[in-house]
Design a binder for these strands. Structure first.
Length: 105
DNA sequence: AATTTGACGACCG
DNA sequence: TCGGTCGCCAAAT
């Protein structure tokens, strides 16, 4: 894990628009190397400087250990919530694709 | 060098 | 939805 990877991950996270989220795996894919766990590793150490609450688990649960804080930020940005998790079908960052799931409660 | 540990993820029952 | 299993990848023991 070099500094370059850290920089890349943090930049990727900074590119997540308010009101949307990305999974650890998504970030890893954007960065182009490493995996979800590596992203998690970086966030755990250096995530304080960016919008860490916009990075959630693939199943929509917010960051382990900081759920309270995360929900504050997320709901303040209007991120749609389903029960105790983010509604990924709606809030997940789209990579320019078109065929995306629709929202039906 | 071997094993355990994570801000994880896909699958299955 | 809820748990358990297995795969993953790098770092820390």
């Amino acid at each position: 894990m070099d500094e370059q990877f850290v920089e890349d991950v943090l930049s990727a996270v900074e590119r997540i628009p308010p009101g949307q989220v990305a999974s650890y795996g998504d970030v890893a894919e954007l960065v182009g190397r490493g995996g979800p766990r590596q992203v998690g590793q970086v966030m755990s150490r250096h995530g304080g400087a960016v919008a860490w609450w916009r990075v959630v688990r693939a199943d929509g649960r917010p960051v382990r250990g900081l759920e309270g804080e995360a929900w504050e930020k997320l709901s303040a940005e209007g991120v749609p919530k389903r029960g105790d998790r983010v509604d990924m079908a709606v809030a997940r960052m789209r990579g320019g694709g078109f065929g995306e799931a629709r929202y039906e409660p």
